[in-house]
Design a protein around this nucleic acid. Sequence first.
DNA 1: ATTAATAGCGGCA
DNA 2: TGCCGCTATTAAT
Length: 160
Amino acid sequence: MMRDLFQVRIETPRGVFAVIFHAAGIYRICFPGTAPPEPCREGRPPWLDLAGDFERYFRGERVEWERYPVDLESYPPFQRRVLEAVRAIPFGAVCTYREAAARAGSLRAWRAAGQALKANRTPVLVPCHRVISAAGAPGGWSGAPGWKEYLLKLEGWSGS
DNA sequence: ATTAATAGCGGCA
DNA sequence: TGCCGCTATTAAT
């Protein structure tokens, strides 16, 4: 189901992010230097202090992203369960691909869990950076390189 | 309609 | 150490 989309640009210490949203939730996060692939108009989000939360987060403060509704409707069922499980990982904590798949209900589907994270349209709000490989390496990131490591460090993860 | 390719993991030789 | 199979989904054949 395709809805009318709006976007806000938000300045942070790490660059300008674009948040794409509609009335029922946040649809996509665009990292600095990337443009939204779908057409959208400028608009003001209905949620209070979204920009403030971004600034605080990129300054290293804890932010309760759970209070923002994220649009997960267009994902296939398993991917959606993975993203919901990943959303529940607390600030500063991490889990493995295996655990993420298990929490989504299919213990052996780590690989498919990786696909779900790759398909994740809303990084940061769905903190896919908190899913790391069992060996302690950060693992993949579908956007520009370095961001996963950066976000983990921002949340106090000391590395392997 | 089938097959290949994925943001990985654990078991077994 | 290296090989194998596994799961869900999409893209290519």
